[in-house]
């Protein structure tokens, strides 16, 4: 099929960008979206033009690297799907497709469709861990964890850190991302020791990074490619309130 792409092009962080239109021809419906982009890039290269930079790596929906805002939605029109797992059979011949980078003050554009998500790293560094050194830990079966809790913690832990939640949110809020880690570790007995400091520090860092507040629109969870639920956000809030009310941190 033949398509018209409107793609955000931006030379680097400090340059202004604009949407540029590219026709692409002969796209197979079995191609993935990124393979379609590969085809376009090969065309551009043959013409001696700069190919479009976009983040991608595993192309199996797990690394969280790919991050395109396609036709007005993060990761495109299919729910529960990363861009790399989106296939062209979901588009029609003759379609015009707009492709933009994630938009957030906390995610500045490096180039074209590549954004800087290091804000996420700093939030994780603020407390997204359990403080155990290598070695000297108890036997894995020493602490039984009810299956229901282990499963719930796992659901939260599947976050791939792609940033679609921020991209989808009208406030560019990172609450879903932050809450996934907070609630995973708050649910597990191993994480209880640090639960208060963890939520306090991670929320503080989230605010420092310049993400917006959560308005409970639910857009983040609806667009999350791995189905992280709003329940986590609510859990973060109760953790936060509890921590603020009872922790010793002044």
């Amino acid at each position: 099929m033949d398509l018209t792409l409107k793609v955000w092009r931006q030379k680097d962080k400090n340059s202004p960008g604009q949407m540029v239109t590219y026709p692409v021809k002969g796209i197979s419906p079995d191609m993935s979206f990124l393979e379609m982009m590969d085809v376009l890039n090969e065309d551009l290269l043959r013409k001696g033009e700069d190919p479009i930079a976009f983040d991608h790596d595993c192309r199996e929906g797990i690394c969280g690297m790919c991050s395109l805002y396609i036709n007005g939605r993060p990761h495109g029109p299919e729910r529960g799907t990363t861009t790399c797992q989106l296939h062209m059979r979901h588009f029609k011949d003759g379609d015009t497709i707009t492709i933009e980078p994630w938009r957030a003050a906390a995610f500045p554009v490096h180039k074209d469709l590549v954004v800087d998500r290091s804000a996420f790293e700093r939030i994780q560094q603020a407390g997204g861990y359990i403080s155990v050194n290598t070695g000297g830990v108890p036997d894995a079966n020493a602490i039984p964890i009810p299956k229901s809790i282990a499963d719930k913690a796992f659901d939260a832990a599947t976050c791939i850190g792609c940033g679609a939640c921020v991209a989808a949110c009208k406030n560019a809020s990172a609450m879903l991302f932050v809450s996934a880690k907070v609630s995973q570790l708050a649910m597990l007995p191993q994480g209880k020791a640090e639960r208060k400091t963890r939520v306090e520090n991670m929320v503080a860092q989230m605010d420092i990074e310049g993400f917006g507040a959560c308005s409970n629109t639910g857009a983040c969870a609806a667009e999350c490619p791995v189905g992280i639920s709003m329940e986590n956000i609510n859990m973060l809030r109760s953790e936060y309130l509890y921590a603020k009310a009872t922790s010793e941190n002044i």
């Binding site: 861990y129 155990v132 830990v137 108890p138 079966n141 282990a150 913690a153 832990a157």
Partner: peptide, 20 residues
């Protein structure tokens, strides 16, 4: 390794009784 990962909060699959 398994001990270490569980201590870090890796949510391995568990049986109903709570063991791995």
């Amino acid at each position: 390794i398994i001990d270490q990962c569980v201590a870090q909060g890796v949510p391995f699959a568990r049986e109903y009784g709570g063991l791995l």
